[in-house]
Structure formats: C-alpha cells, structure tokens
Nucleic acid binder design. Structure first.
Length: 809
RNA sequence: GCCGGGAUGGUGGAAUAGGUAGACACAGUGGACUUAAAAUCCACUGACCUUUAGAGGUCGUGUCGGUUCGAGUCCGACUCCCGGCACCA
C-alpha cells in the first residue's frame, strides 16, 4: 500500500491548481453566483499567523462547498496596502513602504498558497497602486461634487506618535487605534466626509442584513439615535433664547435649572458682571480637567452659576442657568433642561450645588418618589404636579407635551444622532493624495485629471509638525490651477486608508477595468457580497464607512443595491498559548509554515476548523493537530488500503450506507450553519464506525467516493489525490456535492430510554413505530426492581421515551 | 453603570420544540504488533462508593431557589469571566 505523504501531495496539487487555473472565476454567467469575501489584510512583517487562517479557511470551505453546489464563485484576495497599519509596519522596520509592501505581500501570498486556499489570483488588487487609488480619488470627487466632502475647522483627535489626526472611530477609549498613544484634542482645518447625512439610512438599513447581533448593536450604538423635542427657553434680560433638547418632555415641569456647556457661544452673554471671576476660575478648571484624565470613573460634575435666569415656557417659573461640564457642546444644542428628580446626572449635580429637586413622575411600584429620594427615578410612571398634564401616563404625556410645544410655536419634534462626520485627512505620506488644489484666484479646485500621483520621496516619515511629509516636497506642492492655469498649491494631506477600503469589494469584479472604478455589468451580476468574513474589530470603522459609500453610490445611480455585505460573520480571535493576543511585539506569533511542513496543509485546515466553534475565541495549542493527522491517515488507508481487507468480504456486517447518508446530511447542514467543528466530528465518527467493517467492492467504492466528496472542501489536497487514485480524471472540486437519500437517512431502529421517576434505569432497542402497549410491557419488565410502591402514571412519547412515575407514599 | 456573549471531565469542545449529559478529539492508562522505537490497531478513561465476579448505587453541566413526571436546556435572584460603549440629555 502506498503511504500517505502529505508534503508531496500538498505540493503536487498546489502546482496543478495553479497551472490549470482551477480557481479562476468563471465569466459565463449561466449559474447562480456566490461572492465570498475575506476582509483584505494589510501586509505585515509579522507574516500571516494561524489567526488569519481562522478567517480564510472557513471562507475557503464555503467557496469550495458552494462551487460543488453549482454556484459561480467569486473568491478573491487583495491588500489593504495604503494607510496607517501598512505604513507603521514600514516605519518600524526602518524601511520605505514601497519596499516593505511588495515584500510582505509576496510572503503573504506564499503563506496563503501553502494552505491551499482557492483564491482567484488573477483578480488580486493592491490599494496602494496608482491604477487603484486613481479611483479612490475619483470617489473623493464624487463625494465632493455631491457636497459630501468638505473642509472645516474643528477640535479633532491628534495622535502625537503617528503624527496625524484621526477619525473619531479610530480613537479607542482615549488612545490611537494603531499605537495606543493617548490622543490630544487640537483645533485644525481638515477634510470631512458627511456621513451624518446618512445617519438615518445607516441605522434603518441594518434591518436588511444578516449580521452578528453584537455588530449590529455596536453600529446602532455608534450612530446613536435619539428622538425628542427641541424648544426655546427665554433668558431674563436677553433677547436671545436658549435652545434645549430633551427626550423626556414629560418631565418638563420638573425642570429646576438649565445647564449650558462651557463651550456654548451664548456663555459670554449669560455671565453677569459679578460672576465673571468665578466663571473664569471655572473655565480654567474645566480646561485643565479635559487635559488630564477624562476617563476617570467617578468624576464629579463641575458647574458654576452664571448669574442669569431662564423661564420655563410651560409654567413661567424662573430658574437659574448654570454652566456644567457634563453638558457636551458637540451634541444636540449644547444646553439642557435639568430635571434632577428624573435624570441621574442632573440629580448628582443638583445635590452638589444644592439645587431643588421636583418630582413630576410617580411610580408606586418603585416606591414613592419625593424630595428626599436617594437617586433619580428615570423610569416611566404617572405625571404629577404638571398642570393640565397631571395624571397622564408619562409615555402619553410625552406626546401631548410635544404637540403642545409645537402648538405654542416654541419648538418642534427632532431626532439627533451621536454620529459625527468622518474626518479623512491624514498628515501622512502613505495614502492616496486628496485631489484638491488651492488657487489664488479660483480658491479650492478639484483635480479631475487623475490620478494625482503620490510622489516618490526618501523622507516618508511623519513630520510631527502637524503637516504631511508631502508639504515639504516642493515639486508636488507647486502646481497650476486646472481651471485658470495660474499658480496653485496642492492639498498635501492624504486620505485615510479606510477610504481605500470603502470600495475595494467592488474592484474585484473588474480589477483591471480602466474606464471607471468598476464594470457596471459585472457589479450587477456579483454584488452584493453574499458572505463577508473578518474580525469584529472593524465593527464601527470599515463596516460603517463601506456602508456609507455604498449608499452614496446608490444615490449616484452607480449601483442598484443599498447594502454591500449581505451576510457577515466574525471569526473568534486566536490567542497565543500564553492566553495573550498574538503580536510580533510580544514575540508570540504562530505562523502556519512550520505546521504545514510537519503535519501537512490539510491537517492544519481541519484543526483550525475543529478546535472550537467558528466564532469563539481560542487559545492556540498545536498539540491537538495530531488528531487531524491521524484521521487523514485513516481516510487514506480506508480508500487506498482496500486490497488488505478484501479477504474479509462476506462477514455479515450491516450496510455502511445509512450511516454514510446521515453523515452527508449532517455535514451539509453544518456547513450551511457555519458549524465546521461538528461537521468534521461527524465525518470522523463515520470513519470510526465503518473503518473495520467489511463491505463488497461496489459498496466500498460508493462509500469512498462520497467520503472524498464531503471531505474535499475541508481537506482538498488529500481528496484530490484519493480521487485520482480512484481513477477519476477531473478535479474533485468540480464534482457536484452528493445528495443524501431520505430513505436511507431514516432510522429503522430506535433506542428508547426507560426512566423511573425521571432517572435512567434501562434502554430498549426497538423498531421504530412499535406500539405503546408492547413498549410499556417490555419497559415494566426491564425496570421491575425499581417499581416498589406502585405506578402513579406513565409518561410515554412515541419512539422517544418512557418514564414510569412512582407513587410517593 | 449600560449593552452583548459566556461558565459542561485533566484539556478543547458535543448535546437546547425540556427527554440516555460528556459526541468528536487531545492528554493519560493497559494491551496487541515490533529486536527496539516510530507508526498502527484494540480496550479503558466525570467523581465517589458497594461487590469475589457479573453487576449495582450515589452525586454531577458556575451558585441559590422555582416550574415539571423529567432541567445543561425554561423562569427568578446572584457570582465570576470575555467583548463593546461609557457623561449623548
């Protein structure tokens, strides 16, 4: 018998697949399509780890499975090569990104090929090449032309180590998402994309996708929908009124002060002369506060009385106006009506500054609310002390008061979102230049002649001056105005890498197309992405941005769908054996190369899938892989070592076919449900069951062929070899997926547990459908010794269970 | 604090219209084969107890309580772990 030589087989088939272009995407669109996509990685010097494979192997299995189910498959791979991650890698290595990026890509491709992933490499894309970023710039202009890209001065997050500003989504806690350096707030003019214009649709359309619940929740949370009423409050002695927003107008009669953000433009008018010193002192404290630790857990709210008073427009009561640091200038109107009795922060503030607490919602289930309450009651209840609205349930009163306010003409129903516009300028070298020039005469002008090439420079490192390294390249900066031909200066910031990744999934359908970012016909066939797999860390970055661009493209009539990724799945993180996250800096990255060398690509593939459910985090332990290797050897011997067993034929064993068909059914269902671990377990179980039973040649062949077919998406190398050994000429990957027979799957016999008082005492092997009468008789016989006090009742479920319940006396 | 997920043998994990807990695998023990090792094959492998044996019993899915003939699964309270958000009015 020929030995199973995994190394030789891996190499042999990887070569054949490459030579025959087996995984090339079919262009004849006569079949249903399936677009199966991985989050494209940035090329890292760490190389591809076993963690990356936890993403790529499942999608490879799905792609192979779907191909066998008769789909046209688009399964491409590319490189997120522009942007902070790729550039920081280069800087850390002390090399130019133009050197590291191609080098790391070559390594990644090599590593991907040795595990036998079925990518169509003719569609490979790289976001840092001019034929790609030309179109990223084109999209910038699309947004610009639609009024969705604008330049504005505001407070932004700046990472001192990376030397660039960041989007809000790129600030984790208070640190940079790449280097975890604490960010600073600086005032700077920057380019933004107006994602807030799409807040409502980004929220609403989450209903259209099949995504993990936690990702949907995170996006909802980030978008932050709030429905309420905005109304004006008169200020005594001032003509200007103060606008406030509340989601709880039902508590309006409980307002005992008004709180204004220290950054609010009205502050100067509010402060009375005798309060000026006190307010100045407060302002300095607030400034200091924000510089030190904004994260401190139980930060006390800070505030100061302005000396001004407001009038509650509903009951005309006069109440003080405070400046309060817990009121944000960046959300809603930057001022609130404070209701200490029914808002936690207002309550704490009121206690601290000895402001009155007026109860206007009662809920007797939660105890009586009164001035001596120990914390705010924020729930629903019955309105009290609220003029003509008293005795209404709070939810009803809420609507009534909104209508009343609208009737008075002092306010209206509004919706606010927490989402802010997407800051896309980066003061970094390695990105797509923003295609804008500033002309003395014409002002800001779009550059239509694309691409605006990134100049080749030696000094690519961030300047740290708050300016892009490109600002120092005179030949780049100085240009002529495309409109009037006069002298002009280029925008020197580059775009965030997340701009590049906001449309890459469209480029794969026509990666070399040069008339537009994509060939519309191809997009119509392939998009949206049917299955998108990657890490959960992009929940509110890439995934939100790509959804936004998709909607912009839809509105521009470029595409006919509104959500880019129909089904999204997140693989579980692979931790190093120490339990920590794998990273080069920790020196604990496990790469697949050695494992493949020692155990073979198929064993590694199986192990990645088998070790835990797909979406569960795991601690890597290479020891377990030996079990997969043993299993593959058993499969090999079962198929190839037939001649040794031929002598046993004739011993009466039960047919392996019902088991085979049950296994086909189980594997089919499990792949569809992303349960790869139990799919593999069921094939193993089947193998164990039939390994030593004798069968005639025809049966053996039938079993072997089907076994190879259902195993092939998981372990393609050994399956190709075995398929060939059986005398087949075509690749196993091009065979149709086996169908199971309903008849064979049906169980003829069942094992029925017999319980006494719910405790298992015996089991009964009977033919399915045996009558209750017979089973009860057999059951009583079997468990006679436990039946001592007489039977109270017998719980009987046909073909499933008998439980004899005894009398208790 | 809020939202989401989770806790099952020495280990990774199976099993939810409530119905034989521990599939499959790792590690371990014993045996077969072998000059030997590797590889392979077979058996055992939750804990505790009874028994000469065959066999049998009790407990057992984070904790406490409930519903039920019957709970890993449902309900209530709690503990711990992981992920996310964190002054958003």
């Amino acid at each position: 018998m020929r030995e199973y030589n995994q190394k030789e087989i891996d190499k042999k088939w990887q070569k054949i697949w490459q030579k025959t272009k087996l995984y090339k995407t079919l262009t004849i669109k006569n079949k249903p399509k399936f677009y199966c996509l991985d989050f494209f990685p940035y090329p890292s010097g760490d190389g591809l780890s076993v963690g990356h494979l936890r993403n790529y192997i499942p999608t490879d299995v799905i792609s192979r499975y779907k191909r066998m189910r008769g789909y046209n498959i688009l399964h491409p791979m590319g490189w997120d090569a522009f942007g902070l991650p790729a550039e920081n890698e280069a800087i850390n290595k002390g090399l130019h990104p133009k050197i590291t990026v191609p080098k790391y890509i070559t390594n990644y491709k090599q590593q991907l090929s040795i595990v036998g992933l079925s990518y169509d490499w003719e569609r490979e894309i790289n976001s840092s090449t001019p034929d790609y970023y030309k179109w990223t710039q084109w999209f910038f202009l699309l947004l610009y032309d639609k009024g969705l890209a604008y330049k504005a001065i505001s407070f932004v997050n700046y990472c001192p180590k990376c030397g660039t500003v960041l989007a809000r989504e790129e600030v984790e806690g208070n640190t940079c998402w790449r280097c975890h350096t604490e960010v600073k707030k600086i005032k700077k003019e920057q380019w933004f994309f107006k994602i807030t214009a799409y807040a409502d649709r980004l929220l609403k359309d989450l209903k259209l996708v099949d995504w993990p619940e936690n990702i949907v929740e995170m996006q909802k949370n980030w978008i932050g929908y709030s429905e309420g009423v905005e109304f004006e409050i008169p200020v005594t002695g001032l003509k200007t009124k103060l606008s406030v927003f509340t989601t709880r107008p039902d508590t309006i009669y409980g307002m005992t002060y008004v709180a204004v953000s220290p950054e609010h433009p009205i502050v100067r008018q509010l402060v009375s002369p005798n309060k000026r010193d006190e307010v100045d002192k407060f302002m300095r404290m607030v400034e200091k506060e924000s510089e030190i630790e904004r994260l401190s857990k139980e930060k006390e709210p800070l505030g100061v009385f302005t000396g001004s008073y407001a009038i509650n427009p509903l009951d005309n009561k006069t109440i003080p106006i405070y400046l309060a640091d817990y009121v944000l200038s960046t959300y809603a109107t930057g001022a609130i009506m404070a209701v200490p009795a029914h808002d936690e922060r207002d309550f704490i503030f009121a206690k601290k500054y000895k402001l009155p607490i007026k109860v206007v919602i009662q809920n007797t289930e939660h105890g009586l609310q009164n001035e001596n309450m120990e914390c705010a009651y924020t729930g629903e209840g019955i309105m009290v002390d609220s003029a003509e609205f008293s005795n209404l349930p709070s939810d009803e009163g809420r609507q009534k008061i909104i209508e009343y306010i609208e009737g008075l003409g002092i306010g209206q129903r509004v919706t606010y979102y927490r989402l802010r516009d997407w800051l896309i300028s980066r003061q970094r070298y390695w990105g797509a230049p923003i295609p804008i020039v500033y002309c003395e005469k014409c002002g800001e002008v779009a550059v239509r002649d694309l691409p605006v090439l990134l100049p080749d420079v030696d000094d690519y490192k961030p300047s740290g001056t708050g300016e892009s390294p490109l600002a120092g390249i005179s030949e780049f900066v100085h240009t002529t105005c495309p409109v009037c031909g006069r002298e002009a200066k280029r925008e020197t910031d580059t775009m965030s890498g997340f701009a590049c990744s906001s449309w890459y999934f469209l480029r794969f359908v026509s990666p070399k197309y040069d008339k537009a970012p994509f060939d519309k016909k191809e997009v119509e066939y392939w998009l949206p992405v049917d299955l998108y797999v990657g890490g959960a860390e992009h929940a509110v970055m890439h995934l939100l941005y790509a959804r936004f661009w998709t909607k912009v493209m839809y509105d521009a009539g470029l595409i006919n769908f509104v959500e880019p990724f129909f089904r999204l799945r997140n693989q579980g993180v692979v931790h190093a054996p120490t339990g920590k996250r794998m990273s080069k800096s920790r020196g604990n990255v496990i790469i697949p190369d050695e494992i493949v060398e020692r155990h073979g690509a198929d064993a590694l593939r199986l192990y990645e899938l088998f070790m835990a459910p797909f979406d569960q985090p795991v601690v890597w332990d290479t020891n377990g892989i030996i079990g997969q290797e043993r299993f593959l050897k058993r499969v090999w011997r079962f198929v190839v070592g037939r001649e040794n067993k031929i002598g046993h034929v004739g011993v009466n064993s039960s047919s392996p076919l019902p088991s085979l068909h049950r296994t086909i059914k189980k594997v089919t269902e499990d792949i569809e449900a992303f349960k790869f671990n139990t799919a593999i377990a069921s094939i193993m179980e089947f193998m164990n069951k039939i390994y030593n039973i004798s069968m005639d040649d025809a049966t053996h062949r039938e079993v072997a062929e089907n076994l190879i077919l259902i195993l092939s998406p998981f372990a393609p190398h050994i399956c190709e070899e075995l398929w060939q050994t059986l005398g087949k000429e075509d690749s196993v990957t091009q065979m149709p997926w086996p169908e199971y027979s309903e008849e064979l799957v049906r169980e003829e016999f069942v094992t029925i547990p017999i319980q006494v008082n719910g405790k298992l005492r015996a089991t009964l092997e009977v033919k399915k459908g045996t009558t209750r009468e017979i089973i009860e008789k057999l059951a009583r016989e079997r468990v006679k010794k436990w039946i001592v006090k007489g039977i109270k009742r017998i719980v009987y479920i046909q073909d499933r269970l008998v439980n004899i319940v005894m009398r208790l006396d």
